[in-house]
Design a protein around this nucleic acid. Structure first.
Lengths: 195, 195
DNA sequence: ACCTGAACACCGTTCAAGT
DNA sequence: ACCTGAACACCGTTCAAGT
């Protein structure tokens, strides 16, 4: 059957991605399925595969929206300077992750098969996100190479603290809040960096 | 049918877990299924549910073995003292994660539904793993509370660096190796800690 | 008591066949 | 050209029915 053309290819993509975002946000990544998204937008599963290359491709298109939302959120939080802004970014990251737990954790519950690399348009969004951190190190660290290393180290470390804390994998018996750990990280790392 | 009793309940559990380990190691977490594990041990899916509470429970039993293997691996690597041993642990963590990528990433690709906490027997294994790091901080840091904070911060940070690096989510264009970042972390954090 | 296997309600992926 | 829907080979979960 069919050739409804109610929506353009681009419209279909956007509708499917929006539906996917809603499903992941409300039901979690484990309960997401392409069929469910198709049902939500009133099309059949065949249409999803007409518009996306594969299940993985569909998920990457959903996740990149989360990445973009996170970049906007972090930009708005980074108002200070020097060490203070790094703490704001750490607080911002953990706040975003907590408030958007299902969407945020989908970013890491989904991985491409071993050996397969993320597409450029996805990596570009990671790069933008990371650059928000990097630019604030340029005032503190002189050497350009060192800026990149410092920014990547801090960024990945903050992520690790949030990841293990929020997924309950940091032996939470000690009741250390995320803030205690990110403060410890930023305070000591930055002190070591400038000394 | 049936009451074969070829194997005791405990034997069945161990066989199923071993099969699960093999499937995840060879095919990745995304391609693991309880049915596949059942087939591998020559039983039906019903038997899996006879022996495990649920799919999540089965996965946790598989993942806890990886946690135990990792603890043994890390213990063997931590031969130095002070700052050197922290670097050995960082190198050990990334080595284990790289050499056992599929098993290691299953640890984080699987998360319980929001709000549900990890069982005690699983948390205990995390605690043991973490304690390997913690005990090496006791020589460096006096205050007992500070030891725990420092150890958790470093542990989570090392994990974050490995996670983003190995899953390709650290914008690898800059070709920063894991070692560069963990060295930067340990060097600066420790310098800040003792100054 | 132990294990099966069918039943149920799902999946991702492909593609011939309709409009 | 666009979309469908059936087909295929799978899932997790439950449970009556066999031995």
């Amino acid at each position: 059957m069919a050739r409804r053309s109610d929506h353009s290819r681009e419209e279909l993509k956007e509708m499917a991605i929006a539906a996917g975002q809603r499903i992941i946000a409300e039901e979690g990544f484990a309960n997401f399925s392409a069929r469910k998204a198709a049902r939500e937008i009133g099309y059949t599963i065949g249409t999803i595969y007409n518009v996306f290359e594969s299940h993985d491709d569909f998920i990457l298109h959903i996740n990149v929206v989360t990445l973009r939302d996170m970049a906007v959120f972090l930009e708005a939080k980074a108002s200070g300077s020097g060490q203070q802004v790094i703490k704001q970014l750490a607080a911002g990251y953990s706040e975003f992750a907590k408030e958007n737990y299902n969407r945020w954790s989908a970013l890491f519950e989904h991985n491409l098969p071993e050996g397969q690399e993320l597409p450029d348009w996805y990596n570009d969004e990671i790069k933008k996100l990371f650059y928000i951190v990097e630019k604030h190190f340029e005032a503190v660290v002189k050497n350009k190479k060192s800026v990149e290393i410092a920014a990547k180290t801090i960024w990945a470390s903050i992520h690790g603290i949030c990841q293990l804390s929020l997924t309950g994998k940091l032996d939470t018996v000690g009741v250390k809040s995320i803030k205690t750990l990110t403060d410890s990280l930023v305070d000591n790392y930055m002190r070591g960096l400038v000394s």
